[in-house]
């Protein structure tokens, strides 16, 4: 079972996060100060960390930096205030970590933690991604489902790549927009839906079960 360390000074928030993670089959542990959290994180026994940026004793980013400098590669989800998103926070995404602004939907938080854990476990060096009867060649942007070749546009290929790297995992619209388009704002429901519909049409052939599912209000999931 994947273990997640919650570094958060607010007990109520920490309890909410812990409950949600627990429901998704993850094993949460709570540390209420930066020092304590750093101590626990340095053991290297966690698969992911959620980290409040505003801790009473230190800046959350300092905790993340200390971990990296000590060679702890555990991915960190920094939870920051909405008006506190600077270059440093945005830079987290480039380094395999992630950030989320307060207030956030718990589903969004869990989805991000799960993607971080999976990304860490995944072999990122592969050039062909597979899930059940679906595969994607990252070089030629060619997909293949049930033996049928499907030609994809570069954006569609990137979109499918994100799903194939996180199979059976709920991906929210903002996560998709961030990863595939590289922008951090909320694009609205419709826009991403249209792109998903386009991809779905290409992937689903008559007689085949649908492979891209809409999780109402949350996002999408690749599953069969």
């Amino acid at each position: 079972m994947a273990r997640v360390l919650i570094i958060e000074d607010d007990e109520a928030t920490a309890a909410e996060i812990a409950r949600e993670l627990g429901q998704r089959g993850l094993e949460p542990e709570h540390a209420s100060t930066g020092q304590r959290g750093l101590q626990r994180a340095l053991t290297g026994t966690f698969d992911a960390i959620t980290l409040d940026r505003m801790l009473p004793d230190m800046d959350g980013l300092a905790v993340a930096e200390t971990l990296k400098s000590r060679g702890v590669a555990t991915p960190v989800l920094v939870i920051s205030a909405l008006n506190d998103v600077d270059e440093k926070v945005r830079g987290l995404r480039a380094g395999g970590d992630d950030y989320l602004t307060k207030p956030f939907a718990l589903e969004e938080m869990v989805a991000r933690v799960e993607v971080m854990i999976r990304r860490r476990q995944a072999d990122t060096g592969r050039l062909v991604l597979r899930y059940k009867d679906l595969e994607l060649d990252l070089v030629s942007h060619m997909a293949r489902r049930a033996g049928r070749d499907i030609r994809l546009f570069p954006k569609e290929s990137k979109l499918l790549e994100f799903f194939l790297r996180n199979p059976e995992q709920v991906l929210t619209r903002t996560m998709i927009f961030q990863t595939v388009w590289g922008y951090g704002f909320d694009p609205g429901t419709n826009l991403i839906d249209v792109h998903i519909r386009g991809l779905r049409q290409k992937l689903d052939a008559p007689g085949l079960p649908p492979i891209l599912h809409t999780e109402r209000g949350a996002g999408y999931r690749l599953s069969c």
Partner: peptide, 27 residues
């Protein structure tokens, strides 16, 4: 109930947009 979920989504969408504008103006 699905309609209720859609309504809640629309309220959340408004809040998000409001907070986003507030954050922009605060910058």
């Amino acid at each position: 109930l699905a309609n209720c979920v859609a309504e809640a989504d629309s309220v959340l969408g408004r809040f998000n947009a409001l907070l986003r504008i507030a954050a922009l103006e605060a910058r």
